[in-house]
């Protein structure tokens, strides 16, 4: 059986834990609960007639007082950069984190998730900046842990990319 470690990375309160809960357990809670350290879940997926176990590391969100602990990233095969579409600063943070991750563990597949797409009325993201990272070759997917939009697609796309490496 193939196992792959996947990390959820991003600023605090972007919805990392909710995305994992939606994908693994098909549940969603609107109550914000901070993550301390890291929560680990797993999910077995079928992909191209192969069974793949995803070991999902939901890392604590980065804030002004707590930086990303790079030791959590060791052995990752892929990662999600999670952005809260209603908070522009979380996009900027994701870009900084991407460089840090790449420096720490090298180039591995990743996807930029623009989360909370169900709140598009409050969207703050600058379209030009999003277009710029797409031009750089980043895979960008809009998602919502609340409605489930884009969640399955994101995990399947990353799984595919990890198997191609």
């Amino acid at each position: 059986m193939i196992q792959k470690k996947v990390c959820m990375v991003g600023a605090f309160a972007t919805g990392k834990t909710s995305l994992v809960a939606r994908y693994v357990r098909s549940i969603y809670s609107a109550v914000y609960q901070t993550t301390v350290g890291v929560k680990i879940d797993k999910k077995v997926v079928q992909l191209n007639e192969q069974e793949l176990t995803l070991i999902l590391w939901d890392l604590h969100g980065e804030d002004d007082f707590q930086k990303l602990r790079l030791s959590y990233l060791r052995g990752s095969s892929g990662y999600f950069l999670v952005v809260d579409g209603t908070r522009q600063e979380t996009f900027d943070k994701a870009c900084i984190l991407q460089s840090q991750v790449e420096e720490a563990i090298g180039t591995i597949p990743f996807i930029l998730l623009l989360n909370k797409v169900d709140l598009k009325d409050n969207w703050e993201l600058d379209n030009a900046v999003v277009a710029e990272v797409r031009d750089r070759g980043w895979i960008v997917i809009e998602s919502s842990a609340k409605t489930g939009t884009g969640v399955e697609e994101a995990f399947m796309t990353l799984s595919q990319k990890m198997l191609e490496v």
Binding site: V36, G37, V38, K39, R69, Y72, R74
Partner: peptide
């Protein structure tokens, strides 16, 4: 290498 992974929590719920 030496690694320290603080507050790691699995589905058992214990940190």
């Amino acid at each position: 290498a030496e690694l320290f992974l603080p507050c790691l929590k699995t589905d058992i719920g214990r940190s």
